[in-house]
Amino acid sequence: MNRRKFITTIGRGTILSGLAAISGILIFRNSKEKDLCTYDFVCKECQRLKSCTQPEAIILKRKKAKNSVSNG
């Protein structure tokens, strides 16, 4: 019976850390964008644009995608 308990504890730990990781990722993503996203020409090519959820950024990304299709 002890072995089973041990396995449960490990399982619990894994699930908990998984949940913590998921919520951590989501909250971190949510919190950082608000301040860091600027859509000036400076940020047009920056790394953060990819994960940005602001409406302006999404429009910008759509435009970029469109251009790349029509060019290529």
């Binding site: 619990r12 699930i15 908990l16 949940l19 998921i22 919520s23 990722i25 989501l26 909250i27 993503r29 949510n30 964008e33 990819k50 994960s51 940005c52 959820t53 999404i58 990304k61």
Partner: peptide, 25 residues
């Protein structure tokens, strides 16, 4: 939200997902 980083998930929704799981655990 996990698959599409463009989707900004409200924190209330995260809480509604996580809290019952933690309590269940």
């Amino acid at each position: 939200a996990l698959f599409n980083p463009e989707y900004s998930i409200p924190l209330t929704v995260i809480a509604f997902f996580i809290l019952p799981l933690v309590y269940t655990l």
